[in-house]
């Protein structure tokens, strides 16, 4: 083969699509890959308008892109990450991947003759594998992020994540001058439960209560496990009065909730401290330490009660 034949061989047989069009979007050349995957006949393609041969192309957008190549004499790109494909084609791994169509990275190159862009060369690369692995990776990363934020036993937010959210909600509330309340609560005499029913019994109490309380919250509220038997709840856009009412409801529901462990009924009560944001607090930690004071007041005054911190 001479060099021209070799070039032609490579263009035809390479495992990427090649389409060359003129400034009127008429096709000058398509290679084997496009013929096979695009389901078109080679004899039909030559001289035909790109957009009538491939009616599913995003015409307005692609024309604008091609204009940039012709006007500016610059390459243009399209990535599967932003647009899964330009040419709608089946891909070669229909069995082992979940995508319906070939993910594509496309490059459009200007072809210059006598100082003017006369044609554009569209190169289509199959990125289905990359796309598939990236999706798998994203799923794994999301799971990992979730498990990084979750308390293993109770499946509510862990302390680290809960405090991270505290910082964000505190800043947001301050910046937009919105209400915000925090609650801290503690299971009364939890040590007795552990002593009577063992740690497995104690664990079950924590798991059931966390789930029970989570059900009572609104979607914006966030419950987190703050310590052994101590939990916190962030209530965005909620004043002290509203948060105290919610706490009271939680307290009552928990007190009536029967937890069964190895045929025995366990009842528990909560002591709760509530605080609402005010200009005097410079950080969420200042709020938390006062919520803790309110919580201890609830304990001192006989447990199973709610105390709203008063400055």
């Amino acid at each position: 083969m001479n060099i021209t034949e070799l070039n032609s061989f490579v263009v035809q047989q390479i495992n990427s699509g090649v389409v060359i069009i003129d400034a009127e979007y008429n096709i000058d050349l398509i290679n084997h890959f496009v013929v096979l995957h695009g389901g078109v006949k080679k004899e039909q393609a030559k001289g035909q308008n790109l957009f009538s041969l491939f009616p599913e192309l995003p015409e307005h957008w692609l024309k604008r892109k091609l204009q940039s190549v012709f006007t500016l004499n610059t390459p243009a790109f399209s990535s599967w990450e932003q647009r899964q494909y330009i040419f709608k084609m089946p891909h070669s791994r229909p069995i082992t991947t979940t995508n319906d169509f070939m993910a594509q990275n496309c490059t459009i190159l200007p072809i210059v003759e006598k100082g003017e862009v006369k044609q554009a060369c569209i190169i289509i690369e199959d990125a289905t594998d990359v796309c598939y692995y990236q999706q798998q990776l994203n799923v794994a990363m999301n799971k990992l992020e979730k498990s990084n934020q979750t308390d293993g036993l109770t499946q509510v937010a862990n302390r680290r994540y809960w405090e991270e959210r505290c910082i964000i909600e505190f800043d947001t509330a301050q910046r937009h001058d919105r209400p915000l309340s925090l609650m801290l609560f503690d299971l009364d005499k939890f040590k007795n439960i552990n002593d009577t029913f063992g740690h497995r019994g104690g664990d079950q109490v924590l798991v059931e209560l966390a789930a029970k309380i989570k059900d009572l919250l609104r979607s914006a509220d966030l419950i987190g496990r703050y310590g052994g038997e101590e939990f916190g709840i962030i209530c965005p856009n909620t004043g002290g009065k509203g948060a105290a009412e919610l706490s009271e409801r939680i307290r009552k529901e928990v007190q009536m909730h029967k937890i069964m462990f190895e045929g025995q009924a366990i009842f528990v009560t909560l002591s709760i401290g509530v605080i609402e944001i005010s200009d005097q607090y410079k950080s969420y930690e200042e709020m938390l330490s006062r919520a803790d004071m309110a919580l201890y007041q609830s304990k001192r005054e006989g447990r199973n009660r709610v105390t709203l911190y008063k400055a």
Binding site: T74, P75, Q82
Partner: peptide
């Protein structure tokens, strides 16, 4: 085109 694609497009230009 979504926002990321627009940014990629204008950047490349």
């Amino acid at each position: 085109a979504n926002e990321n694609e627009q940014l990629a497009d204008i950047s490349s230009i």
